[in-house]
Each structure stands twice: as C-alpha cells, then as structure tokens.
Amino acid sequence: MQDIKLKATEKRGLHELEAGKDLLGWDEVTQGSILPSFEGDASNIAHLKQEERDYSHYNSYTATVASWRVVKPVFNMDVCIDCQNCWVWCPDTSIISRDKQMLGIDYDHCKGCEVCVEVCPTNPKSLLMFNEHEDIENALSQWPEKKKKEKK
C-alpha cells in the first residue's frame, strides 16, 4: 500500500542530472526568461489531478528534494481517518490525497519537516517519523499501540 506509483513520477530526477547540457548557464541567461510549466495547453490545469497533467521539464514537480531529508514520515493506512489535516498543512505538496482519501506520501518532494506528524489527530498517530534508511515494512511492524487516556 505504500508504493503508490504516479504516472508522472517517471520523469522525476532525470532533469536534475541533465540540467547543464542543453540549457544556458547562469552567466548566459538573458535578463528576462520565461519558463513554461506545462507542455502544450494549460488552460484546464485547475481541473486536472497531478498525474493527469503534462508537466514540462521546467516544472519543479519533475525535480526532487528527497536528499534534504534525514528522517522520513511513514504512513499507516490502518489507523488513518482521512481527516486531511496533513494535506492542508503540508508545506511541500507531498501528501497524496485523492477523492477525500489519503493515499500516501510523495517521497520525491517531502523534506521531512514533521508538520504532518504533529497535526495528525489519531491515537496512535497514523504518521510517524523514521530514519531515512528504515524499511517501510519494518517501520509499519513496529507501530506503537493505542495509548490509554491518563486518568486525572
């Protein structure tokens, strides 16, 4: 359930390596420049989901900041109540939410800021931070039990 593969993800990461080849360097750029975000017509973008859009290689959707991260959030679908708190407060558009359901985390754009874990209201939390190298299956197996309310 963790490996949600979006169609456009195939484009990712390719551009970063090839950036210098066919584009101008920083000292050759003219004073004004236009970067088209999409290939072709983009008038209907607000009605298309990310996987349905035809991103151009100038769009930062095709780039990745995964290397910024030292800890990563892991999503446990069994505990999630689809409240979408993580979606509304994710600063990096990294929560994949479709048709009112939380599907997973976009690890190409997540910077590991932990905001989603903080705002998660479930008990136990359905998002928790693990080390970047931690295997997801392994992380899910060590999920904490439900905490009992402390009696006052």
């Binding site: 930062s60 780039a63 990745t64 600063p91 990096d92 190409d108 754009h109 800021c113 905001v115």
Partner: peptide, 9 residues
C-alpha cells in the same frame, strides 16, 4: 508544486 527550496516547515 513541491521541490521548491523553502525551508522544511
């Protein structure tokens, strides 16, 4: 879109 370079959080 993501992969902008604002600080985490």
């Amino acid at each position: 879109e993501g992969a902008h370079t604002l600080c985490p959080g």
